[in-house]
Structures are given as structure tokens and as C-alpha cells.
Amino acid sequence: MKNRRRMQLGNLVESIKSKVRSLKPKKGKKPYMKMDKSASVKVEIRSRKARKLIEKTLKAADISN
């Protein structure tokens, strides 16, 4: 009876170990899939870049005056 329980416990431990190993990230594989940006996100990125460019231009114009 005790041997049987030990075997079951051993099998349980091995299955837990294999599940933990499978959770570790694989070398060379990306951890996630890259998603395409939606149209609204693209617009937001462009507007941020435009604002930064405007700020930079205004600072440069202030310095030259």
C-alpha cells in the first residue's frame, strides 16, 4: 500500500515538474505575437510626433530671436 502511494506521489511530482518546465520560455521563440496597430493608434502616434516636432520648432525659433 505504501509503495503504491509513493509511486502515485512520484508520478504527481514528475507531472508537476514537466508542467513547470513547459511554462519556461523557449530560447529563440518570441514570448508573444506582435499585433498590428489599429488605425486610431496610428493616428495617435502621428499626432504625438507632430506635437513634438512643433515644440522643437518653437523652441528653436525662440532661441534664434
Rank of each mutant, 00 (worst) to 15 (best):
S18H: 07
N3S: 15
L53P: 08
A50Q: 15
Y32Q: 10
S64D: 07
K42H: 10
M33Q: 09
D62P: 12
Q8M: 04
K24C: 11
K27I: 04
P25E: 02
P31W: 06
M7H: 15
S40Y: 07
G28W: 00
P25Q: 08
V43P: 08
K34H: 01
R6C: 03
M35N: 10
K17L: 10
Y32S: 11
V41Y: 13
K29D: 01
K26R: 15
S64M: 06
E55Q: 05
K30W: 07
D62S: 06
L58A: 02
P31T: 06
I54L: 15
M1A: 14
P25M: 01
I54M: 15
G10K: 07
K29T: 01
K59V: 06
K42N: 00
L23P: 09
R51V: 09
E44L: 05
K17P: 01
M35R: 14
D36W: 07
T57Q: 00
G28P: 01
V20L: 15
L58V: 14
R46T: 08
I16W: 11
I45V: 04
E55Y: 11
K17Q: 04
L58I: 12
K42A: 09
L23H: 14
P25S: 03
K34A: 06
S22E: 08
G10L: 13
R6I: 09
L23C: 04
G28S: 14
K30S: 15
K52W: 13
E44D: 13
V13T: 03
I45D: 02
K26C: 00
D62I: 11
R6W: 12
K19T: 05
K52E: 05
K59S: 12
K49W: 10
I63F: 02
R46L: 06
V13H: 01
K42W: 02
K52S: 15
I63K: 08
L23Q: 06
